[in-house]
Amino acid sequence: MADKILKKLNIKVWRQKNASSKGKFETYTIENISTGSSFLEMMDILNNELIEKGIDPIAFDHDCREGICGTCSLYINGRPHGPDTEVTTCQLHMRKFKDGETITVEPWRAAAFPVIKDLIVDRTAFEKILQAGGFVSVNTGGVPDANTIPVAYEDAEESMDAAACIGCGACVAACKNSSAMLFVSAKVSHLAKLPQGQVEAKKRARNMVAKMDELGFGGCTNTGACEVECPKSISITNIARLNREYLVSRLSR
């Protein structure tokens, strides 16, 4: 499919100087954007133009630009990572937009993800949840031989599916409750399914959920929006597993 040129786009974007300032929407126009460019390339072009005009460029998160690091965010036209499915914003292309369209770009909105500047939010909260239980203890020493710990195929598959989570936070952004349950459930599941994860299994779900609550994320009401908007299609069956692990550990005490 040959690339076309989008003659004119209006980009309505959230501008906020720093964490403590109020912030507001600004609308910029941008012309002649190829449908083959990625959304972030479009943002780069816009930023160049802003710099030439002496306007502070729009701050947004990005790193790998190949859909694997989870750094890029952006709530585009009412959806995290924009109108495409199973992609991060860096993998979203301008062919998903129409000429003359107004594209609304907002930061992730959650009490636990405060805005630092413009479209950049602080996602340290995810780090803190991981520190609360998203780890395994191992003995130091030589590398163990391969296949000394047998893992059933099904378990390995489920564990790897959950481990695909890149910690982007789209699940929180998509959820009407700003719940981090999909992220936490992915992190609990990929360890719960492996023998290596059993040592801390009893406490892991409890500690991570307690941390999640403490940081101000909302609770899950099973709308399923997270699974649909997750770029890695993490399944909400992981949330059922997290609920199970959590309830068993709480009620068996």
Binding site: N77, G78, R79, A110, A111, K176, N177, A225, V228, E229
Partner: peptide
């Protein structure tokens, strides 16, 4: 109580939301 807690988790609302494709109306309006 539950909905109030969840409501507090997003103090600044989105300007433009498009949630209908990702979740059912009933699930969002329990």
């Amino acid at each position: 109580y539950l909905e109030f807690q969840n409501w507090k988790a997003r103090p600044v609302k989105y300007d433009k939301k498009n949630m209908s494709g990702a979740s059912s109306w009933a699930s969002r309006n329990m």
